[in-house]
Nucleic acid binder design. Structure first.
Length: 389
DNA sequence: TCTGGGGTCCTAGGACCC
DNA sequence: TCTGGGGTCCTAGGACCC
């Protein structure tokens, strides 16, 4: 049975309280199932819904294979997410023909060699190409050239525009803006006054104005990173919370070291049983990439912030990233202790690299029912830029 | 109905400095 | 005694993306 042809979703485990729709087949659209909504709600909309668990290693493999094919058609390829990429076709016509022909070639090759279908959008900038790629699916090539904007883009509901989410849709509707065309032809100054810079941005987008370059991912500087986890049970005491934070610190610090960064700011986020979120952050006296230090800071932040309610989700996020070799010591650093801790980190990293992520872990997690390295969706880091073209 | 996890950017208010 | 104005940094929270 082909999951793509029946109502089917990839979803997290409801027992682990991760039961949301992560991806959906095209037939799900008819039932009004939306990505990100609870599985229980999706099942209600479609009683026969088939739910399969995610397989991130497979998605990463497909992602890499896709990128390899795309790079055969241009040196300028930017991976935008696990399943989207931008390709600058400038100058490639002489090798592979006009863009429409080239796109069809790429699309068919992916289908035949990788076994899945893609949509390709063609235009003069990334915004228009992306909007075009979201037109009818599957296995299609669409164009959205500037002269096609009024006929192809403007009739769409405004929330279909990139960067118009739930909150902005509500505000725009309030202003009498319901289609992308309404937005494009709305008074720009007034929109800037009502919605600040975001108003000006989406006004540009509605008019097809966008000029960011296709940037290969190794030229993109990471701004921050973090890991968070939904806990199987509500945590109501510091000891358990600290244990979760330790497992998150393990993951985040290992990623920092793996990417060659130290962080200057640490943030802890808390989501309560009632789904209220709050966070607490601090700039460090000296940047760090050390697991124990990150753990100590995170527990301090947690203790300062926690109001005592049951917790269902915890996260550690680091930012102000500096290349490891540029970092400085403060006057108060214990240099010798720092060197010992960092060589301990190195040793653990090497063991995990050689024998696998779970080959060495802290005894506190034995029989704890908790993962010693929490957070993460896949096993490998890959550069993504969620909402920046 | 019972709600993932990874990111980026913007805004606002307060502290602090000149 | 009571009062400027501008700039930067820090923190918290919210918006958006996949």
């Amino acid at each position: 049975m082909d999951l793509r042809k029946i109502p089917a979703v990839v979803g997290g485990s409801q027992a682990d309280r991760r039961g949301v729709v992560l991806a959906k087949s095209i037939p799900c659209k008819n039932y009004g199932i939306k990505t990100g909504e609870p599985l229980a709600k999706a099942k209600e909309k479609c009683p026969g819904l088939v739910i399969v668990p995610p397989n991130y290693p497979l998605y990463m493999k497909c992602h890499k294979a896709l990128m390899d094919i795309l790079r055969e058609y241009s040196p300028l390829v930017q991976s935008f997410s696990i399943d989207e990429a931008f390709l600058d076709y400038t100058g490639m016509e002489e090798h592979f023909g006009p863009c429409l022909k080239g796109a069809t070639l790429i699309k068919n090759r992916i289908r035949e060699e990788l076994g899945f279908t893609v949509n390709i959008g063609i235009s003069t900038n990334k915004l228009l190409a992306k909007m075009a790629s979201d037109f009818t699916k599957p296995d299609r090539v669409h164009t959205l050239f500037p002269q096609e904007i009024p006929s192809k883009l403007w009739p769409l509901p405004v929330e279909r525009l990139f960067m118009v989410g739930r909150a902005t849709k509500a505000k725009l509707n309030e202003l009498g803006i319901f289609t992308i065309g309404d937005l494009a032809n709305y008074n720009r100054e007034l929109l800037g006054w009502k919605l600040k810079s975001h108003g000006l941005l989406i006004h540009d987008y509605a008019n097809g104005i966008e000029n960011s370059p296709v940037l290969p991912n190794d030229n993109i500087q990471m701004k921050g990173m973090g890991n968070s986890t939904t806990i199987k049970f509500d945590v109501d005491n510091k000891k358990d919370a600290h244990k979760v934070l330790l497992s998150l610190a393990e993951t985040v610090a290992a990623r920092l070291r793996n990417e060659g960064y130290k962080c200057g700011v640490v943030s802890v986020s808390i989501k309560t049983h009632e789904f209220l979120r709050y966070s607490h952050q601090r700039k460090l006296a000296a940047p760090t990439d050390n697991t124990n230090e990150l753990y100590e800071i995170a527990t301090q932040l947690f203790d300062e912030a926690w109001n005592g309610e049951p917790i269902c989700h915890l996260g550690i996020h680091v930012s102000h990233l500096y290349p490891r070799e540029f970092t400085q010591y403060t006057l108060f650093d214990n240099v010798k202790k720092g060197a010992m801790l960092s060589s301990l980190d190195r040793a653990v990293d090497n063991i995990r690299k050689k024998y696998g992520g779970h080959s060495i872990f802290r005894a506190t997690y034995l029989y704890s029912g908790m993962s010693p390295m929490a957070g993460g969706v896949g096993t490998e880091d890959y550069a993504v830029m969620g909402n920046i073209l």
